[in-house]
Design a binder for these strands. Structure first.
Lengths: 225, 225
DNA sequence: CTTTAGACTTAGCTATGCCTAAATACGCCG
DNA sequence: CGGCGTATTTAGGCATAGCTAAGTCTAAAG
């Protein structure tokens, strides 16, 4: 018999679940310190919350080894992710926000919107599958598509690719990228790699763009065929 | 020098301020029990919060006599009222909500939206001055229009008036009224009063509507000239 | 003028979620 | 293998905001 999904988690719990979800996406478990860093909290506060999450059946904790989400916890985290990304998309396409300033607003709203409102927002948008940063929006049932992408610096010279995802939360970087036209959906061709972690040069619509290595790593591309 | 408006009140504080604002609109001070009833809290909890509100300079408390808002408190309450009504209006006109089901959603969102978002919503609506229930929306600076209205049962037979405001939060009543076409902006003519607090009969667009006294009291009308 | 019901406040407890300080475990380096 | 630094947990507090139980004030009725 499935447990009733606890649908009334506190704001804090929701935030922890989201962070743990992100930290464990690559398979490893999330450490206390890593969580504390992201949420800007003291480590003991995180220790305490991890215990509560485990008791609530949302997370599994191996003391001193880290924490992972249970099925319930992952489900709740995906619900938050859906909310966040639907809200961001709506704010950008219907209320004049730009992709560099939606994050904070969505961060607050995602804890306040009802299931119903999220679905209305999604429908008003035509049930988009990606948000303005190219991040996939989980479906209402928690399904999330897994697009295989390659960081821009790993693209060989001469190859043409499509930018599919921009993996930074930095408003400054997002603004610069938007100004340079380097946004999801755009087709670019790799022209040059400089060695020793130097910049890469790409062309888009005939124009040249030089992008520093660190930023280029955050431009995730889909390769042809 | 004006005090900086405390812009980071807790959800609870915001709720208390709203309730005290409503209870004191008619000039009297709000009693502990009245506040407790509306918020569905125990009286001692309210006593405690009133003390905190007074310490924060948001309310004035005469022990055993009731509480009123200070200028700061009233300002914060009006800010919440603006948020609530702008959100309700947006949900109805852009997201397919009906006037009987927006309240709960707005109640949660009003604590989460930023000043910026409220102004964007308002602009997207053309800066409306009334919400779907006909309640005036305070301006961003706290100005609120005071429309003088008359409860429907006080309209003499034969007079034609416009429904300007529907003063009930009951979803059932709102649904019935919408079905009967008795919504703000509609012009009706008083046909009959039954005695002993009996129902009133009105015509709208040639149709007759019989409305019980209690409900009719909640239909606030503007009279000609 | 007293009594008394009901409104209001005080006292003291609970839960959440944060903190600092102190204790303890892990794992690496010599 | 032992020690040491870092990560982690435990212990003990604090603030907010709720609760019940008990005491106190007000005002109306006798």
């Amino acid at each position: 018999m499935p447990k009733y999904a606890a649908n009334d988690l506190s704001r804090s719990v929701e935030d922890y679940l989201k962070v743990i979800y992100h930290l464990t996406e690559s398979g490893e478990s999330a450490s206390t310190t890593a969580i504390a860093d992201v949420l800007d909290l003291a480590a003991p506060s995180v220790s305490g919350m991890i215990k509560r999450l485990a008791e609530a059946g949302l997370a599994e904790h191996q003391p001193y080894k880290g924490v992972t989400l249970t099925k319930d916890g992952r489900h709740a985290a995906l619900r938050m992710l859906r909310r966040h990304r639907v809200i961001e998309t709506y704010l950008v396409s219907h209320l004049g926000y730009t992709w560099d300033n939606v994050h904070d607003e969505a961060e607050k709203l995602e804890h306040a919107v009802s299931e119903d409102l999220v679905e209305r927002l999604s429908r008003a948008l035509g049930d988009p599958r990606f948000d303005p940063h190219g991040d996939p929006i989980p479906a209402a049932d928690g399904q999330i598509v897994d697009v295989s992408t390659t960081p821009l610096p790993d693209i060989p010279v001469g190859e043409s690719v499509t930018i599919s995802r921009v993996d930074t939360g930095s408003a400054e970087r997002l603004r610069w990228l938007a100004g340079a036209g380097l946004v999801p959906g755009v087709r670019i061709t790799m022209l040059d790699h400089q060695p020793f972690n130097g910049p890469v040069t790409v062309s888009l619509n005939g124009a040249r763009r030089v992008v520093g290595r660190e930023l280029a790593e955050q431009l995730l591309c889909t390769r042809p065929e």
